[in-house]
């Protein structure tokens, strides 16, 4: 018991090391947040391109765009994230690993989120698009006001799944010298030969994920207003 506490003391309290976890968690969260926003934007754009490109009477422009998007998702989903980060970092456009990481994770999650949105858009009955168009709304307006709101509601669980995975995935950021919370833990462990930082970090991730789950439940309840009660 004494030993356990000593381990914890050295890993968390001594020399105000908890501040390091705080900084690391901050970096983890900002990586995940930026990547998530980027991923959503990329994901929507790609999903819409693929949707229009796959229609019977799609024009050559949409078909080409859809093809490019296909290549993007294939490459990103077909290669490991660590490798993608190393490649982006090696381009040396970003002197700081943090930026390379944000871009890398953003591009990566964009590919997964695009598939989520695509399935969401496809889940909406074609009659919704027809009803919107028959009222004189343009294709774009119908997409934004009628299709996407319903699609997003349908894919919310899958989307949160992706966010949760993303928060934990950022733990490989240490590969390109980003001091996220996992990297902090592993360097504390290496410096002081104690394992408590690993458990402390595990608890931190768990709390983050629990918070996201709570957010998801709240959001789903709000969006369920229009369902039959």
């Amino acid at each position: 018991m004494q030993g356990l506490y000593k381990d914890f003391y050295r890993g968390f309290i001594e020399d105000a090391r908890w501040k390091l976890y705080l900084e690391g968690t901050g970096i983890t969260l900002s990586l995940a947040a930026v990547a998530c926003l980027m991923g959503i934007v990329i994901g929507v754009v790609i999903a819409v391109c693929k949707f229009y490109g796959s229609r019977r009477n799609a024009g050559p422009l949409w078909k080409t765009l859809a093809k490019i998007c296909d290549i993007y998702t294939t490459v990103i989903r077909g290669t490991p994230i660590v490798l993608q980060l190393l490649i982006i970092y090696s381009l040396t456009v970003w002197t700081k690993g943090t930026y390379a990481c944000m871009i890398g994770f953003g591009i990566n999650s964009g590919a997964y989120i695009s598939e989520i949105f695509r399935s969401g858009i496809n889940s909406i009955d074609i009659g919704q698009m027809e009803a919107g168009r028959s009222l004189g709304l343009s294709e774009g307006t119908t997409m934004v006001r009628i299709i996407l709101p319903q699609a997003i509601k349908n894919v919310l669980p899958a989307l949160f799944n992706e966010f949760i995975a993303l928060v934990k995935e950022t733990s490989v950021a240490g590969y390109i010298a980003v001091r996220d919370v996992t990297k902090i833990a592993s360097s504390l462990k290496g410096t002081y030969f104690i394992s408590s930082p690993l458990y402390i970090t595990a608890v931190i991730y768990l709390v983050l994920v629990l918070f996201l789950t709570f957010l998801q439940k709240k959001l789903e309840r709000r969006l369920a207003r229009s369902d039959r009660s």
Binding site: D125, G127, A131, G132, S134, L135, S138, I146, K153
Partner: peptide, 29 residues
Amino acid sequence: DKVRQHVGMVFQHFNLFPHLTIKENITLA
């Protein structure tokens, strides 16, 4: 789109917008 603003259409399966209230369904367009 301009032409369709003058041509109302009613479908077999109603195709109301489920995420909008009845009033919003009517006023959206």
